[in-house]
Every structure is written in structure tokens, then in C-alpha cells.
Amino acid sequence: MSAAPKHAPTMAQMSLAERVAPYAPILLVVGLVIAGFVAIPATSSWLTLTVSGLAMGMMIFIMASGLTLVFGLMDVINFGHGAFVSVGAFVGVSFLLLLEHMTGAPNLLWNLTALMVTIVGAMAATGLMGYAFERVIVKPVYGHHLKQILVTMGGLIVVEQLIIVLWGPEEIYITRPEALKGAITFAGAALEKYRLVAVGIGLVVFLAMRYTLRRTKIGLIVRAGVENGEMVQALGYNLRMVFIGVFVAGSALAGLGGVLWGLYQEVITAHMGNQTMILVFIVVIIGGLGSVEGCFIGALMVGLLQNYVAFLEPKAALISNIALMVAILMWRPMGMIPVVKAK
């Protein structure tokens, strides 16, 4: 009989690399900002670009967060998510036109009220639409990825065409509320007011979502559902209901993203949702499907990188995002913050 192996516990501290690894994604964002600072000659233009990159990232995050949660929770991939973005933007524009007397007045309070009413209206519309979409289009194809992709794509086509029926085929130009036009100057850099507002709204949404997911009971159920849905159901929670709630919330957020994106671009078309979906998919993939934090970090990286590269080498902007995705998938094939499924 051979002797038992010697018991020799080691009490060494984890190496630096191991301790840093969980924070690597967020450090990557910081690194990107620093790299931008080094690469871009003038500090003022760097500041401008950073703010617009953050604004863009926040908007993409708002649109992408619902998609990633829906996937994490029920393994449903919604290629029609872009439809909510478009509908949100169009409903938003209708509200803005209705409230023209409020948005036209050079009064910040009135303008913000109008913006809030618009956002709430658009979110209500897309939330309702999300409910209908889930019931009619997604529900019959649970657990079948191929059919989900096909059917939600079909839903996207139908919704895009309905938008054209309702609002006409021409693109619509939007004017931002009076007080959000123009820019403020800070440290020699021109910062567009609207972008600052977008960054603010994005941060609020992210923090609210984080709070809901981390501190409330419903958030606990959602997180547990992402990790192990069967167990949550075995404990007596109706995961379908939770899922519908998340789907509706995600659709409403996509509508909010649509309003913000429309005001950012100042022009909307029926196809805008599908165009933004390209960035959204990149973000969702590099963040790790199902992870809200990963989605947030990924969105910031995509927004920043796109703005920096567009300044340094305009033609490489879209390619840069693909390159980012390739690099991250080589580093972590399941995305930056992979969701661990207990299955």
C-alpha cells in the first residue's frame, strides 16, 4: 500500500493577475479612455469625444439590456428587438410634435417635462407592444432557437412595414427641445447639452436596474432564474410571469432607447431599429449573453471606440467594432462576463 500523499497546504496569496481578473472588463474601459487620451492630440477634442462616446454607449446599453436579460432568463433570442426601438422613436416623435408648444419654449423645466412625457408615452407604447409581441410571436416558439430567430425576424418585417403604413415612408426630422440645443463649453471642449442629458438618463437607468436586480426580491428571482430556472420554478415561483414582466420592461427600455437615439441622430426611419441592432448584438455578445453588467461595459467600450476611431480614421469606425468583438471573443469566448448556468 502506498503512503498517503503529504498534506501540504499553501497559504500563498492569489497572484496579482488572478486578483485583477474579475475587474479586467472595467479596467479595459478605463484603458480605452486613456488610450484615446494618448492617441488624440488635443485634450479638448478628446473630452468631446469621450462624452459623446459615453452618451452613445449609454443609449446602446438601454436598448441592449432588455435583450440580454430576456435571453438569460428564458433562452429566447429576439431578433425583432429593433422593432421596439423604431416604434419607440416614432411614438416619441408624435408626442414631441403634440407638445410642440412646450418643447419650443426656451424654458428648461417645460422642455424636460415634455421630454419626460414623451419618454413615458413611448415606453408605455412599446411596453404594451412587447406584451403583444411576447404573446403572439414569441410564446409559440419557446425552446426552439431556429424558429425564434425566423419568427422574430418576421415580426420585425411586419412591424417595420406597419410603421411605414402609419407614419409614411419618408424619414422624419426631429428638432430637440429648445433648452437642449447647442453646447456648453467646459475646459475648452464643446460638450453638447443633449449628450450630457443622455449620459445622465443612461446612468440613472443603469443604477435603477442594478438596484432592482441586486436589492429587491423580484431582482433576486430574476437573477436566480437566469442561473437556474428549474430550481426557481420548483420553489414555487411562476417564472413565465417573471419572464413576461422582463420582456415588457426590456421592450419599454428599447422604446426609451429609440426616443433617445432618435433625438441624438435628429432623424428617424422605420429601419433605424434594425440598424442599431447591429451595435446592440455586438455589445450583447462581447458582454456575455445574459449579463447586464457585461452589457453595460460592452456598450461603453463600443461607444467610446467608435467615437475615437471615427475621429482618427473615419472609414475604420464600423470595422473597429467588429475587430473589438473578434479580440474579445479570442480572449473570452463566452463574452467578458460570462453567465454561469447551473445546468
Binding site: I77, F79, H145, I149, Q275, M277, I278, F281, I282, V284, I285, L289, K315, L318, I319, N321, I322, M325, V326, L329, P333, M334
Partner: peptide
């Protein structure tokens, strides 16, 4: 190799992104 290796579902999203990037590139060059 990039997407199917990990998850077949990535393929749909990645091809969508790459195809639109190529379409933009073609109209820019």
C-alpha cells in the same frame, strides 16, 4: 470558427454584424 465554436446562436448575430459592416465598407471604398 469564431462563432460556431462557442455557440451556434452567436453565428446569426455575428454574421448580421459582419455583413452590415462589409456593406458599409463597400459603399465607402
Amino acid at each position: 470558427l469564431f462563432s460556431l465554436r462557442v455557440r451556434a446562436i452567436f453565428f446569426a448575430m455575428i454574421t448580421l454584424a459582419v455583413a452590415s459592416a462589409v456593406a458599409v465598407l463597400v459603399s465607402q471604398l
